[in-house]
Amino acid sequence: MDGRTRRWAGHREARRLELVDAAVVAIEQHGPDVTTEQIAAQAGVSRPGLYRHFEGKDDLQAAIAARSVERLVAELEPVWRPSGRPREMLERAIAAHLRWLSEHANVYKYLKRNSLPTGDDSVETASTNVRSVVSAHVAEMLVDGSLGAEMPPASAHPLAYGLVGMVDAAAAHWLDEPHGALVEHLGAQLTEACWAVIRVTVGAVVIDALDRVGAETG
């Protein structure tokens, strides 16, 4: 690829990203049922002009999902660098996740509605599934000892996906039907539930030891 071709490819990619960011703004404004016409209007292009940069609606949805997950991971960056007591780390992680969901509720609902299958209708791609991305990060942290103790993958992955799945399901229901609960109350409730599961899985003796270490290094 010569320099001119690379510059053109870079320009097209930059333009595509601008359109994706405009689509996210449109979703925030109009909700998860946003139309392609509303996205195009926000981007300042015609509908055909929008699709000159995407291979159809599925490609556009996948790009929006990937961009949203990228932003979520960036906003949760402090969570991926844990310090302090294990329970405090869990509390911060859940609070950060819930804060993102509550601040970007329309985008989250859009992602839930438009996750794309990988070929098997029961499986969703990580790029279109916030839960999968966060779960993978948590599992990696459990395996490599970032949370204070190394766990075998056979235990770490089910635990991570189970905990994140519980938080995600509870948050999704809360967004639709809060029943008067504040996000802080939901976070406290989920922290207690997740902590109980972790203590059972890892063992109270190990948790107590990690807690002492966290108090010294936090």
Results as ranks from 00 to 15, higher is better:
65 A>M: 05
50 L>E: 01
7 R>A: 12
3 G>L: 08
14 A>V: 11
1 M>Y: 04
11 H>S: 13
83 S>Y: 14
51 Y>W: 03
52 R>Q: 09
22 A>F: 06
64 I>H: 00
40 A>T: 04
16 R>W: 06
51 Y>M: 03
43 A>M: 08
43 A>K: 01
40 A>G: 07
51 Y>L: 02
83 S>L: 11
71 R>T: 11
9 A>P: 00
31 G>A: 09
33 D>I: 08
69 V>M: 05
28 E>F: 02
69 V>S: 04
22 A>R: 07
76 L>Q: 14
72 L>I: 10
58 D>W: 05
9 A>Q: 15
37 E>V: 12
86 P>E: 03
13 E>C: 03
74 A>C: 10
81 R>F: 13
38 Q>R: 12
67 R>Y: 05
18 E>R: 15
43 A>S: 09
47 R>H: 09
76 L>F: 10
72 L>W: 05
25 V>D: 15
80 W>V: 09
73 V>K: 07
52 R>A: 08
78 P>N: 14
74 A>L: 13
80 W>H: 10
78 P>S: 15
39 I>R: 00
51 Y>I: 02
80 W>C: 08
32 P>T: 08
50 L>I: 07
2 D>Q: 06
76 L>N: 05
6 R>V: 01
65 A>V: 00
31 G>Y: 05
48 P>W: 07
22 A>C: 12
53 H>I: 03
86 P>V: 04
5 T>E: 14
77 E>G: 14
29 Q>A: 10
39 I>C: 01
41 A>H: 13
4 R>F: 00
75 E>F: 12
52 R>P: 04
87 R>N: 03
63 A>G: 04
2 D>W: 01
44 G>A: 11
42 Q>D: 08
58 D>V: 09
12 R>F: 03
87 R>Y: 05
57 K>V: 10
56 G>K: 05
8 W>L: 14
56 G>P: 07
26 A>P: 05
79 V>H: 01
